[in-house]
Computed example of a mutant assay.
Amino acid sequence: MKENLQTNLRLFFGIGFLISIILIGLFAPWISPHDPLAINLSSRLSPPSWNYPFGTDHLGRCILTRIIYGIRITVSASFFIMIFTGVISLPIGLLTGYVRGRTDHIFMRMIDGTLAFPDIVLIIAIVGLLGPGFFNMVVAIIMVRWADYVRLIRSLVIKITKEDYIVSARMSGNSHIQIMKRYILPQILSPILVFGALDMGRIVLLIAGLSFLGLGTQPPIPEWGVMLHDATSYFQIAPHVMIFPGLAIMFFVLSCQLLSDRYRKLEESI
């Protein structure tokens, strides 16, 4: 009972953090104190103050404003990647988990090949071939992350197809498409959404890491990884330029990790 209460509290706070961050990004033009691209060299590297709550960067731009606008880029990109990856992986996972046989064998070998390398290494290699840029970074992350989604969906489908009501549905004359649509798909949507919410934290780290390396979003766009990259030369004399973007990434990832308990329990039951 106590463990379930702790899990529900983590889930509640995780969802609350995510909703708060998303709302801040949506209302960025109304709550931001400054223009995210406005340069003010007379105030460069200023410490936190009433006018600049998080201080300014090396070009005198408001760090708080850039972090708020960075939500629109970093979080919206991670959300798009999660949705698009799920759309691609869902039919593949359903097909491989339900049909099995040669189709399952082919896709599982592709998945094993993808998962044999760390995500960041494979993504850097793909971006290196496509060229640096926001769009190429998004494409590279989708090309790598789809394997984990397919593996999860396949495992869920395999477990559900062993249930008695699926056997009854087959004996009742339902087609394979009808069984997947009516009986399997509704059962796996919730776990996929939980996994996707958790995966958003990992995707944000990938986006920030690639932008930090100069392979993703390019300056002067206010993106968290770009802000960390710009701050490396000034960290010793003005540590706030790196601390606050780092905290923004940490709190977003933490809010996603608070959803992880439910996914871990899901994995244990598979």
Rank of each mutant, 00 (worst) to 15 (best):
I83H: 01
S155I: 06
R10S: 14
L95A: 11
W224H: 13
I203M: 05
A125D: 07
G93Y: 01
H105R: 15
E3C: 06
F212G: 07
V127F: 08
I123T: 03
G97I: 01
L129D: 00
F251S: 11
G128F: 01
F134M: 14
P36R: 07
Y149C: 10
Q6C: 11
R202V: 10
L26H: 05
R61S: 09
F244I: 02
T96R: 03
L11S: 14
R182A: 13
F195H: 10
N40P: 00
S168I: 13
R170M: 14
N51R: 10
V139T: 06
N8Y: 03
F27D: 10
I249G: 05
T217G: 06
S190L: 06
T114P: 01
P186E: 10
P219C: 11
S269I: 01
G173P: 06
A116H: 04
I203L: 03
E3D: 15
M1S: 14
Y69N: 10
G60M: 08
R154L: 13
I31C: 07
I142Y: 01
Q187E: 15
L258G: 15
I19S: 15
L122E: 13
D35E: 13
Y98F: 12
Q236W: 03
I158C: 12
H105P: 00
M1G: 04
A147Q: 05
G97L: 05
V157G: 07
F27S: 09
L90M: 06
I31P: 05
I184R: 04
F80V: 15
M108H: 02
L18Q: 13
L213I: 08
T114W: 05
S89P: 03
H34G: 07
F235L: 12
W224Y: 09
P245N: 08
V139F: 02
L37V: 01
I81N: 09
R109C: 02
T217Q: 00
Q187R: 11
V157I: 04
P220Q: 05
L9E: 03
G214P: 01
L18H: 05
P29R: 12
S175V: 08
A147E: 01
T217K: 00
P53I: 14
G173A: 15
L9G: 11
I71Q: 06
M180F: 04
V139H: 07
G60V: 03
A125W: 07
R44T: 10
E3F: 08
R10K: 15
Q6H: 06
L193Q: 05
L64E: 09
I22Y: 06
S255C: 04
G70A: 08
I177H: 00
L254P: 10
F251V: 14
E268L: 14
I221P: 00
L130T: 05
I179R: 04
S32I: 00
T232F: 08
I67C: 11
I88E: 12
P219W: 00
T114H: 04
S32M: 08
D164E: 15
L189A: 15
I73Y: 13
S76W: 13
L254R: 08
R264I: 10
I177F: 12
L129F: 15
F117M: 15
S46W: 03
P118N: 10
C256V: 14
L205T: 02
L247W: 04
L115G: 00
Y263D: 12
